[in-house]
Amino acid sequence: MKTLVICSGGLDSVSLAHVLAAKGDLSRLVSFDYGQRHAKELDYAARAAQRLNVSHQIIDMRPIGAALTGSALTDDIDVPDGHYAEETMKITVVPNRNAIMLTIAFGVAAAQGDEAVATAVHGGDHFIYPDCRPAFTESFETMQRAALDGYADIRLSTPFVHKTKADIVTAGTAVDTPFADTWSCYKGGTRHCGRCGTCVERREAFHLAGIPDPTDYEDPGFWKAAIAQASRKNDR
């Protein structure tokens, strides 16, 4: 099934691209520049496309992103440190980001003759991001069937939506995903900070999967304290 993958250049989407490529289903990668402070991830998406020998398109959403204010990913707001499950991480929500990206991706897929659009949303995203939850993805696919009725039949593929990030690390390892050539950190520095929610989640995922983490973190040990703090809050 010819499948377009929405690829940020992060661990999840690059792993998904490698999984689909191993099956012979990957048709192209599409990325979005919405003015995110960690836009360096787009370079990692480009490298994934080159490595997998598929086309790569970066769609400029910066004017739209500028209107989606209030997120630490787009505005001059400090990215909080800590575990993904912390309430403070909700400041990283970009409203309707996935809904907008998916809508564009479905249009591209219809124009290019693809049969599916794949996104790497996963179970760890559900707490913070409403447009990563199964209720959203299922409803979105229904909406797209109506939007393209009689023109194209494209399904939405979300193979990780009920999986953990550790499951993604395991799946990516099985198809030789080069994790060191992916970018997760929300702070967009020269190295992964090791302290923001996505860095903590990334480090924890490798630990839970029992797979060595090749990532170079500025603070490689912070994740343990962050997880312990989140656990104490959940126990209250």
Rank of each mutant, 00 (worst) to 15 (best):
T3W: 09
I6F: 07
G9D: 03
S15G: 06
L16Q: 10
A22E: 13
G24L: 11
S27E: 05
F32Q: 02
Q36R: 12
H38G: 06
A39L: 10
E41K: 05
E41P: 02
L42I: 02
L42K: 03
R47F: 10
R51C: 09
R51N: 12
N53I: 05
Q57D: 15
D60V: 07
D60G: 06
M61W: 15
P63T: 12
P63C: 08
P63L: 10
A66K: 15
T69M: 10
T69C: 10
T69F: 10
G70P: 03
G70V: 01
S71P: 00
D75C: 10
D75M: 11
D78M: 13
A85M: 12
M89N: 07
K90W: 11
K90H: 14
V93K: 05
V93I: 15
N96F: 14
R97V: 03
M101Q: 05
L102I: 12
A105I: 07
F106K: 05
G107E: 01
V108L: 07
A109Q: 02
A110M: 07
Q112F: 12
Q112G: 10
E115A: 14
V117Q: 00
T119E: 08
A120G: 07
V121W: 00
H122C: 01
H122K: 05
H122W: 04
H126K: 06
P130W: 01
R133E: 00
R133A: 00
R133Y: 00
R133T: 00
S139F: 13
S139C: 12
A146H: 14
A146R: 12
L148H: 08
L148G: 00
G150D: 13
D153P: 03
I154H: 06
K165G: 05
A166W: 03
T173W: 11
A174D: 04
D176N: 15
T177S: 04
P178C: 02
Y186D: 02
K187M: 12
K187T: 14
G188H: 07
G189R: 14
R191K: 14
G194Q: 04
G197W: 06
C199P: 00
E201L: 14
R202A: 09
A205W: 04
A205K: 07
F206G: 02
F206D: 00
A209S: 11
I211M: 11
P214V: 03
T215L: 04
D216Q: 15
K224W: 09
Q229V: 11
